[in-house]
Design a binder for these strands. Structure first.
Length: 471
RNA sequence: GUCCCCAUCGUCUAGAGGCCUAGGACUCCGCUCUUUCAAGGCGGCAACACGGGUUCGAAUCCCGUUGGGGACGCCA
């Protein structure tokens, strides 16, 4: 069977990390078996759905590279079809009108709970005559669900799960205002869209029982279900929009999409000892039946480690482009071409030292800062502890540097000086590093000097000497 | 309260009865390399929740306990 999957978020907030993984699994499964992956926006909650959230979902999926087939389906637009299905069931006697008020239902739930019974609707309108209908109350339409027996789901992840039908109540299909409920809409849309595999969070597992009852009533074959475990936060509880989850856009600045994909797919799924692999490999290896049943915790530290890896692998020009806006924000203005040239030259050794794009930008900042560059506290201390005469000596060496201004040539020169004075190379490298980068840690010093150029190097050292001399 | 699901190092996982004195990754700690910091290389700490079965043999199968999670809406 060629799978047709779907990701069906409700646009009531950002696309959160758990939703992103659900989308990823659906996408992976469809790709793996040459099927199709659809996007359906479940916007039937008119009060809470927003166009901004729809945009956030589109943007989040696009960022992750999870392209969907065809046009996104907006569920609300199909409300008439959903209502028609409800009426069809009503006519067949497979559904009925219920005239309970919300207050009555609340009281029902309360007393059921007190009595230790399942807290659902008791079916009091299930078999009443039409003549008994109260005036002035708009009814809902409820499914006439089976009362005996059990409903069984053969879940691709959870295995065979069964529940006694007496645990399930007669769910509302159509609200009093005539709009369909989620439960109905999902079943109708999945059917109409030809969805073969419903891959979603296992918070929907109990919904699957109800949905399969609707399918049954309509005489439709229910899709295969695969309920994947939720992602939990660091506290071990469900991560959701309502509970501490961040939207994927919160990660877009600092993380690479390939890192996020790799991280997310490893949450609940693995392929032997494989830790770092391409999306193509993931597609080739992925199978929904291999997904584990235990919930996984979201671990930012590991995501960061993965991101560091992908940062090192990433193309230099791409990263320069990526950090440019961050840098311009830090700088408070546009960057000169000269700065871009420096970044391109420096990126190779900058990127191996950063774990996030944000860190990368911060570490790159000294290259593009206008003089005099600010010094960190530790850099300042190192410089203050330095004999001004020594700094002058370094400056002289720089000014007098003959031959090509290359990392290698500079290193040779400074090694000679160090040897002549009986000093370790670090003794002269550190004050220079502090002066040129404003920090005590940086990419290799002679590379920095090379990229900065002789003039800038000389000037930065001078800045420091003047200031130190004035102390 | 009722129902459902889950349970291997701190975290993510490998493991589908003997290959397990339980493997990998992240974290942490050493060592190495080294002009700083990284990266790299080498090494280390660290787990089958507990109790019963089944079996010649169980991390792997069954039952129970405990712990965790989820669902119980005219939300999705």
């Amino acid at each position: 069977m060629i799978p047709i999957t779907r990701f069906a978020p409700s646009p009531t907030g950002f696309l959160h990390i758990g939703g992103a993984r659900t989308a990823l699994f659906n996408w992976l499964y469809a790709r793996r078996y040459g099927g199709r992956f659809h996007l359906r926006i479940e916007d039937t909650d008119r009060a809470r759905s927003t166009p901004e959230a729809v945009e956030a979902i589109f943007a989040g999926l696009q960022w992750l590279g999870l392209t969907w087939d065809g046009e996104a389906v907006f569920q609300f637009a199909r409300a008439a079809r959903h209502a028609a299905v409800a009426h069809f069931l009503l006519e067949r006697g497979l559904a009925y009108r219920c005239y309970c008020t919300p207050a009555e239902l609340a009281a029902m739930r309360e007393s059921a709970r007190q009595a230790g019974r399942p807290a659902g609707y008791d079916g009091r309108w299930r078999d009443r005559d039409a003549g008994e209908t109260p005036a002035g109350i708009a009814p809902t339409i409820r499914l006439r669900a089976p009362r005996a027996g059990e409903t069984i789901i053969d879940d691709l992840v959870q295995g065979r799960v069964r529940v006694a039908n007496e645990q399930l109540d007669d769910m509302v299909l159509l609200r009093a205002d005539g709009t369909p409920t989620y439960m109905l809409s999902v079943v109708v849309d999945d059917h109409d869209m030809g969805i073969t595999h419903v891959i979603r969070g296992d918070d929907h597992l109990t919904n699957a029982f109800r949905q399969s009852q609707i399918s049954q009533a309509m005489g439709w074959e229910a899709p295969r279900f695969a309920h994947i475990p939720l992602i939990h936060g660091a506290d071990g509880a469900k991560m959701s929009k309502r509970h501490g989850a961040l939207g994927v856009e919160a990660y877009r600045v600092g993380f690479l999409p390939e890192a996020m994909r790799n991280y997310l797919v490893r949450l609940g799924w693995g392929h032997g000892d494989a830790e770092i692999f391409t999306t193509e490999q993931a597609i080739a290896w992925f199978d929904i039946t291999d997904v584990g049943r235990g919930a996984a915790r979201f671990d930012l530290v590991k995501l960061t480690a993965l991101n560091a890896h992908y940062l090192r692998e990433a193309d230099d020009a791409r990263l320069v482009k990526h950090i440019r806006p961050l840098l311009e924000t830090l700088l408070g203005g546009p960057m000169e071409d000269r700065g871009l040239d420096r970044l391109r030259a420096a990126m190779a050794s900058l990127k191996v030292r950063a774990r996030t794009v944000t860190e990368l930008a911060e570490a790159a900042l000294f290259y593009v800062r206008p003089r005099p560059i600010p010094l960190s506290d530790t850099a300042r201390q190192q410089l203050a502890a330095c004999d001004p005469a020594f700094l002058a000596e370094l400056a002289a060496l720089i000014a007098a540097h003959a031959g090509p201004w290359t990392a290698r040539g500079l290193e040779e020169n400074f090694r000679l000086l160090a040897e002549g004075k009986g000093l370790a190379l670090g003794k002269l490298a550190q004050p220079l590093r502090a002066a040129l980068t404003g920090a005590t840690i940086s990419p290799p010093l002679f590379e920095v000097m090379h990229i900065l150029g002789q003039e800038e190097t000389r000037a930065r050292l001078n800045d420091v000497m003047r200031k130190e001399g004035n102390i």
